[in-house]
């Protein structure tokens, strides 16, 4: 099986400073802890507003961990690495 076991979705609404920062933070954390085992898709709700309902997105930015289960949500600019790692169940 391919190693990309972490399937991550980052919901944003336009390229705001907050979403750019969230993406940069996410990328950095993943490179540091999940190198080679993750994929990130960015969903821009300004382009596809209908997708907001499926994952019950209210806050922006929201990071959704689709895989592995269970589904996890982390909101905010992901500036607190520790919290992101807890949210992704990478550390306790």
């Amino acid at each position: 099986m391919k190693k990309s076991t972490y399937k991550l979705l980052l919901y944003v609404a336009g390229a705001t400073p907050k979403s750019l920062e969230a993406f940069a933070n996410l990328k950095r954390i993943c490179e540091g802890h999940l190198k080679g085992q993750y994929s990130i898709s960015v969903v821009d709700l300004l382009v596809t507003p209908k997708l907001a309902k499926g994952d019950q997105i209210v806050a922006i930015p929201t990071l959704v961990r689709r895989l592995p289960p269970p589904l996890k949500k982390i909101i905010g600019d992901l500036s607190n690495e520790q919290k992101v790692l807890v949210g992704l169940n990478l550390i306790d």
Binding site: I60, I74, G87
Partner: peptide
Amino acid sequence: EIEETGEFDLEGLFVRLGS
């Protein structure tokens, strides 16, 4: 089910309502 880290807004809600 939600972890909060840093700044966020409720743009998702606005988008849903607007759509």
